[in-house]
């Protein structure tokens, strides 16, 4: 087991009171596998990524356990966590332009990681950086290594970020919406590159995304998050074949497909009415209940994330959902 998270909670101190962005979250990822954390804005997926990386802001309080290769991370002090970042775990962000330094060339930034963690000399680090840029399929890597971020396309900048993340062969790679800012043809290239690197290096990947299509093509396992909690957790193929949380069911029907839906053009899409709850004042019990077509009086109690079969867990009193179809 590369990453094992148990009962993770993150609470932010805000002017309007404590905000629990992540609540009682548990999952694990093995080497060479991709776990997707999927959900909409504010569901806690990016906060989870920052918590694993030890990059939470000072007003955040973390509880629960984050184990990397069996070693507890949540009790590390910031300096220890910084030493592990880059070497044992690394992250690729959504917007490469804001995470790259505009004042240094692509090659210098990759080389910097190598000098810091592998104590390579300047010349050796730069040569390794060029090799890494070539490895992430940047054409003409030796020339591109001498260019600044603004001279590179969005896709190439994201490749530079991936090269930096993989420079020290981390055991865990966290990719937070790594292709959301990219065009669809370039997105396909970057996701294929991440798959290929994962296969070759055996690194474990946590893929944070809002796109269920990406989950279907690139994840082995999935956690669906809603309003800070895990709604459902399953192997990816199982989630798409037999979703057992009403939120997952709604999400799957909300995005129209290019094949055309069963209802045809202009037919009504499944629509989750209303909006996500305010996490400063979350509803009592199941947080999805106010938007759920199957809610009842029992939903004022929080349903536990319970297995309905080995490896497939859902937090819903109605599960298995075949009950509501039979009713």
């Amino acid at each position: 087991m590369v990453l094992d998270i148990r009962g993770l909670a993150v609470t932010f101190r805000t002017d309007r009171g404590p905000l629990r962005a992540v609540d009682d979250l548990s999952f694990s990822v093995e080497a060479g596998r991709t776990l997707a954390v999927v959900g909409e804005s504010g569901c806690g997926k990016s906060v989870t990524a920052l918590a694993i990386m030890g990059l939470l802001p000072p007003n955040a309080r973390l509880s629960g356990s984050i184990r990397l290769h069996g070693r507890e991370m949540s009790t590390l002090n910031p300096a220890e966590w910084r030493r592990r970042r880059g070497r044992e775990l690394a992250m690729v962000f959504q917007e490469p332009m804001t995470s790259l330094n505009p004042a240094f060339t692509a090659g210098e930034q990759v080389a910097e990681v190598l000098r810091l963690h592998e104590r390579l000399g300047e010349r050796a680090a730069f040569d390794r950086a060029v090799a890494l840029l070539d490895r992430v399929r940047i054409p003409d890597a030796a020339r591109r290594a001498r260019q600044y971020p603004h001279q590179l396309s969005g896709g190439m900048r994201q490749r530079v970020m991936i090269a930096m993340a993989l420079a020290c062969k981390p055991r865990l790679l966290i990719a937070d919406e790594p292709t959301t800012a990219l065009d669809v043809t370039v997105q396909a290239q970057i996701l294929a590159l991440l798959d290929e690197l994962k296969r070759e290096t055996g690194t474990a990947v946590v893929l944070i995304t809002h796109d269920l299509g990406i989950v279907a093509d690139h994840a082995d396992d999935v956690v669906v998050m809603y309003a800070g909690r895990a709604a459902e957790r399953a192997p990816a193929a199982r989630l798409f074949a037999r979703p057992e949380h009403p939120y997952t069911v709604g999400l799957l029907g909300a995005a129209p497909r290019i094949e055309g839906g069963p209802g045809g053009r202009m037919s009504r899409l499944a629509s989750i009415e209303g909006t996500v709850p305010d996490l400063l004042h979350p509803p009592e019990g199941c947080r999805f209940a106010p938007r759920c077509p199957f809610h009842g009086t029992d939903c004022t109690r929080q349903p536990p994330l319970a297995e309905i079969e080995p490896g497939h867990a859902t937090a819903c009193w109605r599960a298995p959902l075949d009950q509501v179809l039979a009713a």
Binding site: S153, T185, Q187, Q189, L191, A192, D211, G213, I214, D217
Partner: peptide, 16 residues
């Protein structure tokens, strides 16, 4: 390139 259809190989190389 539309994700979710089981096509994992990138359809075309390079940038616009």
């Amino acid at each position: 390139a539309v994700p979710g259809r089981g096509i994992k190989a990138p359809p075309i190389e390079g940038d616009v």
